[in-house]
Structures are given as structure tokens and as C-alpha cells.
Design a protein around this nucleic acid. Structure first.
Length: 571
DNA sequence: ATTGACTGCCC
DNA sequence: ATTCTGC
DNA sequence: GCAGAATGGGCAGTCAAT
């Protein structure tokens, strides 16, 4: 009997050992082998959980369940278990760069009550995560801390390290869905393509693993169904129009609306809307439901589109922030609906009347869209499109999109199928770049993971000509190579004035050139403005902070963009 | 009843 | 979202 | 070229603290 139980139960320490092995293996093929071997010996009842945990996820993104534990509650929990104060944990994290390693170290130092420990199983860990996720309402934060603390006090330092990383969604072992997907194919001897397709449709790597273990037939049963959302296809950034046209020849160009992705499912009178991450957002969008019911002329469909807020007075799209005010709203939905009306533009179709359309090419799919949708003017329609192989025409369309105040254009391969979840070279996005700003680095935070030991994110200031102050305009953390990060860290270290936890205050000396998509009004930064999608393009060793850009210039650039006079650098 | 910190998810 | 990096 | 990792602004919802 003992033997039977031993077969079903898997110790969590075994999974932790695999995590560790993966963390210190760099070759992807080797990682795939390790995972594949592990999956082979994983009992079927826990294959679903184990596959998910290997990717560092607990619940699929479409599930309503979420842990509701972020850094703050986690540090409280670690503090509760170890007696080390949250402030000290933050200090350790600044030095160490990984909360899992910090937890492991603290626990190793602590003399544990080994006698009272039970050995954790994978199931127990998962069940604890579920309990944490299900705690809600008054007193729930205490409960979450209590459940997680229980888990950590029964864990070995190594087990705790990975539990803690999973809680924050930063497993950092160089394994995610892609490698687990390949490993599933290898473990159960099935072509990767088939596994990949099943994964795109099921959206749950565990379900796919289990099906794969049961053979090809079980995998092939995973099909597109109405009211089961599928991963939206994603676009790649294109260097420029010419480049894409050269590659594709004749292609479709569509306006790139700066809104939120909506995947609309309809069957008869019932309509559901899913977000890009497959959350059900139907309740927040009754106007889209109504319009969809009116505009869609098929009994059963799954379509893909973008919803955007248009200013009814000017016909121009409103700031993206306005969309956020409505998109996941739960209260006063009707009130905001009047203030911020949405227009929805459909650009793809995945399923019509019992049939998958994802294998049709885009030209054919567009035809289906036009047959299925009878536009309701200014409310619900198809994405504005032209088909051309001519550069001048393409450029004209790009300017047309920008003049209408939109984000840019999409260029799509007419021969391509719909590949859910993939960011493949079938869809390109082209957006203008704004004039850059030279801003002063006024602070930073110590990096984590592969940025451990370096300053990894930089607070930026814009110069106030009158007071000589540098007013915060947000932060930047991307655009820098590892070499530049190293260089910046060493040149900023002598400028440190004050340090607390991961935060560092700096003498305002160093200037960086920052690119961005848009200047936004911001209540969060003292300058009153912030940058959307900031990235460093150059370290301005040649400039002093007194030569940095001024608040006046920032404001005039902000005002310019309102009249859509964007500077296009990518033609 | 109000405010603010935290979290998750849009881009 | 953007960007960099190892494979 | 893919996959993974590290990081951005800002919104509403939730819960704790006042």
C-alpha cells in the first residue's frame, strides 16, 4: 500500500531540485531534456500542476483566481516567519537582487524547528496557493499572510526560495511556456507543432501536458470553441515601411488604434468579451455587447479587434488613459459609458458558425469579416484598410492614420494564417518616434535578477529654469546594454546622497537622452508630466545637468503632440 | 466615511 | 508596452 | 528569430488604517 501512495505523492523538494538544476543550466536544449525527463516521471494526477509550476505560474491567466500577494505582503510574511524586519529584508534585497535568494539565506541562518516540520508535497504547495487566492474580504490579508507563512515554515531554505519567487511571478530559471511546450513534445513523443497548437487553444500548459501524455488523439481534441478565449496574435515592431514592403510585396495596411484589445465571442444572443490576457471584461463593456449584437450577422463567431475612445466633438481618439478608466470597471459602468464612448474596430476572425478560420489566409479572413459585420457607423466596424505594394501609397496611408490621431499602422501578410499567441512576422506595427529629451538622472533603484548589483532603473528630472530644480518626470529602465548598466552604475555610485532599501537618491549630474512614444499628464510626478514607453537612447557624457531639457520644452512638446505634429523618424 | 498602499492588468 | 541577450 | 527576462506609466478594485 505504501508503494501505491508513494507513486502518487511527489515531494516538493524534488521539484525544487529540478528548479535548481534548470537555474544553473544555460543551454536551452539541456533544459528541455531535464524538463522532459521530469515530466515523464511525473504521475498523471499532478502533471497539470507540475507543468504549470515549471513555467512559474500557479493559475492560468484566464482564471479568476489570483494570489493577491505582492512584494509588500510577501516581505511581511517573510518577516513574520523569520523575525527579520521588512526594512531589513529590503536592504538585503538591494544587495542580493533576488528575494528568493534572500529568503533562502535568512532561513539557512535561522536554527529551525526541524522536528516539527512535515515534508511538503507538490499538492500541498498548490493547495496552499489556492487557499491564499481564495481568501477575500475583511481580514483576508492576514489570512493570506498566515497561509503563506505556514507554507514557508514547513519549507527547507531551498524550497522556500522557489515558493517565494513563484509568489512574485519571477521564477528566473530561464524556463517559461516555450521550453515546457518543447519538453512536453519530447517527453510524450509528439510533434512540437501539435503541442503548440493545442497550447494556443487551451491556454493552459498543464491541460496540454496531460492530453499529450494520453496521446495524439487527446491533443487533437483540443479545438476552438466559442466562450473559450484564445491567445491573440501579436505584432512585431518593424524598422520601417520600406523594409516590410520589400519582404511582403503586396500587403494589407490597417490603422493601428491606440486602444485595448477585445476578443468578442458570440453565440446566438449571448456575447462575451475577453481582454488581451483573456480576462472576461464583458460586464464593463455593455455598449460593445449591444453594438456587437447589432453589427454581427452570424450566429456564432470569434472575432478580434481594438476598442478606442473617440472624442465625439473632434473625432480624434482620446488619451489611452481614458480607456483605462472604463476597461475593467466594476462600479458606475453606465455613468462612465456616457462620458467615454467607445468605438470598436474588428480586424480578424478566428471562428464562424462551427468552423475554425485561423488556417485561412488573411485576405480570405478579411473577406469573412466583411461578410459577417455590418458596421454601425461610429460605433462598431472593421479596421480601416488598404491593400498595396506601393511605397508611396503606404506612406500616404501612414500619414492619414497619424493625421486622424491614431498610433500608427499595422502591415499584415495577406497570405498568413492566424497564429494565436505568436509574435510572428505576419503582422508588423509601425509607430512614429517623438523627438528625444535630455533628462537628468536624479535617483535610481538597485536592480534584481540579471541586474543584481547594478542600478537598474533611473529616476529622471527635467530642469526648472526659474528655480534650478530638477522636477521628476518618471523613470527609465530599458535601452541600456549590460555594459552601459555597468558603466552607469560606476559613474553614479559616487553621486549617491541617500539610500533606503532599493532606492537611491543621486546628485543631479548625469544626463541621458530618452526616447518615448508620448508625453502624458501625470498626477504621480512633480513635473506634472510623464513619458509613455521611455527608453534610453544615449548616455550624454558630453552634457552637464545645466544643459538638460527644461520643463518649458517638455510642455511645448506636450502641446505640439496634441495637434498631432509628430516627428517621424522612421520613414 | 475617507484615504492611501498595494495589486493586477491595460498599454 | 520596449529593449537586450543567449541559444 | 525565438524565448526569456527586466524594466516603463497609469487605471480601478480591494483592503487596512484612520
Amino acid at each position: 500500500m505504501g508503494g501505491l501512495i508513494a507513486q502518487i505523492i511527489m515531494k516538493y523538494s524534488k521539484l525544487a531540485d529540478v528548479y535548481e538544476k534548470l537555474e544553473f543550466t544555460s543551454s536551452k536544449l539541456e533544459k528541455t531534456d531535464i524538463i522532459s525527463e521530469f515530466l515523464k516521471e511525473t504521475p498523471e494526477d499532478i502533471l497539470k500542476i507540475v507543468s504549470m509550476l515549471l513555467t512559474g505560474q500557479v493559475f492560468p491567466e484566464w482564471a479568476e483566481l489570483e494570489l493577491g500577494v505582492g512584494p509588500s505582503l510577501l516581505y511581511d510574511t517573510i518577516s513574520f516567519v523569520t523575525g527579520v524586519k521588512p526594512a531589513e529584508i529590503k536592504n538585503l534585497l538591494a544587495k542580493e537582487g533576488d528575494i528568493g535568494n534572500v529568503t533562502e539565506k535568512i532561513l539557512k541562518k535561522k536554527v529551525q524547528h526541524i522536528l516539527f516540520k512535515k515534508e511538503l508535497t507538490v499538492e500541498q504547495v498548490y493547495t496552499s496557493f489556492e487557499r491564499i487566492a481564495r481568501a477575500y474580504g475583511s481580514g483576508s490579508q492576514n489570512k493570506k499572510v498566515k497561509y503563506l507563512a505556514e507554507l514557508l515554515s514547513n519549507a527547507s531554505p531551498k524550497e522556500a526560495k522557489y515558493i517565494v519567487r513563484i509568489v512574485l511571478g519571477e521564477l528566473r530559471i530561464g524556463v517559461a511556456e516555450g521550453l515546457v511546450r518543447n519538453a512536453i513534445a519530447k517527453a510524450f513523443n509528439i510533434e512540437v507543432n501539435l503541442v503548440e497548437r493545442a497550447f494556443m487553444l487551451a491556454n493552459h500548459i498543464g491541460i496540454v501536458a496531460k492530453a499529450a501524455k494520453n496521446g495524439k488523439d487527446a491533443l487533437e481534441k483540443i479545438r476552438i470553441k466559442v466562450f473559450i478565449p484564445i491567445r491573440p496574435m501579436l505584432a512585431q515592431i518593424a524598422p520601417d515601411i520600406q523594409h516590410v514592403l520589400k519582404e511582403l510585396g503586396e500587403a494589407a495596411m490597417e490603422i493601428k488604434y491606440d486602444g485595448a484589445r477585445v476578443q468578442i465571442h458570440k453565440k446566438g444572443d449571448e456575447i462575451k468579451i475577453y481582454s488581451r490576457r483573456l480576462e472576461n471584461v464583458t460586464e464593463a463593456l455593455p455598449d460593445i455587447v449591444k453594438m456587437a449584437r447589432e453589427a454581427i450577422k452570424a450566429d456564432e463567431v470569434i472575432i478580434d479587434g481594438e476598442t478606442v475612445a473617440i472624442d465625439t466633438a473632434t473625432g480624434k481618439p482620446r488619451a489611452f488613459q481614458e480607456i483605462l478608466k472604463r476597461f475593467r470597471r466594476k462600479h458606475n459602468i453606465a455613468g462612465m459609458l456616457e462620458k467615454i464612448p467607445f468605438e470598436t474596430y474588428i480586424f480578424d476572425v478566428m471562428f464562424v458558425n462551427g468552423k475554425e478560420t485561423i488556417d485561412m489566409n488573411f485576405r480570405e479572413r478579411r473577406q469573412v469579416i466583411e461578410e459577417v459585420i455590418k458596421p454601425v457607423k461610429g460605433k462598431f466596424g472593421t479596421a480601416e484598410q488598404i491593400i498595396t505594394s506601393d511605397f508611396d501609397e503606404a506612406e500616404k496611408f501612414y500619414h492619414h492614420a497619424l493625421n486622424k490621431g491614431h498610433e500608427g499602422i499595422m502591415i499584415k501578410n495577406l497570405k498568413a494564417p492566424y497564429i494565436p499567441g505568436a509574435r510572428v512576422g505576419y503582422m508588423y506595427k509601425i509607430k512614429p518616434t517623438m523627438e528625444t529629451l535630455d533628462l537628468v538622472v536624479i535617483g535610481a533603484t538597485w536592480g534584481t535578477g540579471k541586474r543584481s548589483g547594478w542600478l537598474g532603473s533611473y529616476f529622471l528630472g527635467v530642469r526648472d529654469e526659474i528655480t534650478g530644480e530638477f522636477l521628476p518626470v518618471g523613470r527609465v529602465a530599458t535601452g541600456l546594454s549590460e555594459e552601459q548598466l555597468k558603466e552607469l552604475t560606476s559613474s553614479l555610485k559616487p553621486l549617491i546622497e541617500y539610500e533606503e532599501g532599493q532606492k537611491v537618491t543621486l546628485k543631479p549630474m548625469l544626463v541621458v537622452e530618452v526616447a518615448y512614444q508620448e508625453i502624458q499628464r501625470s498626477p504621480n510626478y512633480k513635473s506634472g508630466y510623464a513619458l509613455r514607453f521611455p527608453r534610453v537612447v544615449r548616455i550624454r557624457d558630453d552634457k552637464s545637468s545645466r544643459e538638460a531639457d527644461t520643463k518649458d520644452r517638455l510642455i511645448s512638446l506636450y502641446n505640439l503632440q496634441a495637434t498631432s505634429e509628430k516627428k517621424k523618424l522612421d520613414l
